[in-house]
């Protein structure tokens, strides 16, 4: 891990204690209305993710992987079923409360990095904090600390277009974890990177996971999937397989 410095402060900050799975889905379905009826994107998905897990969701294009991740990230509100995050019934929450829960516990890494082009690296890192009502002076300290941890202090004043893909994704990950979320969601985080950059990002994920961050990633890469502790396979909206890779055993959370 050449570009990530571990500190005691890397662990996610959760202010309340809970028992049971971090994430629990029960019979989650998503469908679109079409003239001939309904087109299902997800079918009766039931899944439990324990705190500290590193889960990889795999499957062919159009299987529903990214949709599942969007539901976990609470970006998608149009679905049926039950979703519990830290025992909070997300499905019963109003959209505003879901966003509040998201801001408190979830970080998101995108395949396209999605950095804000007209902001510098440091400003990009500041954005999630600004939406979490962190006082300005504290934000500056947290940003400085994060720049240091990810060893990108020298790039803090650069704009995204002045960075390589790997560097942009590094900033993307730093931005996702800067508010110390308990759950990190990553949608094809290495999809736009070459193999060595991808390896670096995956090793960064492993480090974050070891420090206590629960990670759920979507990927097509078998190699990247091996960094996690569990692989959930989705096909045609159904969860068809759920395999633990760390201990080689099968999981128990297969739904449907």
């Amino acid at each position: 891990m050449a570009f990530f410095r571990t500190t005691k402060r890397d662990a996610p900050v959760e202010d309340d204690v809970f028992s049971g799975p971090l994430v629990s889905l029960r019979g989650v379905e998503k469908a679109f209305d079409i003239p001939s009826g309904k087109s299902y994107v997800l079918r009766r998905v039931s899944l439990d993710i324990a705190p500290g897990e590193f889960v990889t969701i795999m499957g062919p294009s159009g299987a529903g992987k990214s949709t599942l991740l969007s539901i976990l990230g609470m970006f998608d509100g149009a679905w049926q079923g039950e979703y519990y995050l830290r025992n909070v019934a997300v499905h019963a929450l109003a959209n505003k409360d879901r966003l509040s829960l998201n801001r408190k516990h979830i970080g998101f890494v995108f395949q396209q990095y999605h950095l804000l082009d007209d902001l510098t690296v440091a400003e990009n890192l500041d954005v999630p904090l600004s939406y979490r009502d962190v006082p300005r002076d504290q934000r500056a300290a947290i940003v400085a600390d994060t720049l240091d941890r990810f060893q990108i202090v020298g790039k803090k004043d650069l704009y995204p277009r002045q960075l390589s893909g790997g560097q942009q994704q590094l900033v993307g990950v730093a931005r996702a974890v800067i508010a110390k979320p308990g759950l990190l969601l990553a949608d094809e985080p290495t999809g736009n990177l070459h193999s060595s950059q991808a390896r670096d990002i995956m090793e960064l994920f492993v480090t974050l996971n070891r420090q206590g961050t629960t990670i759920v990633q979507v990927t097509h890469s078998e190699e990247n999937a091996q960094y996690g502790s569990r692989i959930v396979t989705v096909r045609d909206g159904w969860v068809v397989d759920d395999v633990r890779t760390g201990d080689g055993g099968r999981g128990t959370g297969v739904g449907g």
Partner: peptide, 14 residues
């Protein structure tokens, strides 16, 4: 749209 989508994904509220 993209920028606003990113900001909302990062926690910006209405």
């Amino acid at each position: 749209t993209r920028e606003l989508g990113i900001r909302m994904a990062l926690g910006a509220v209405r």
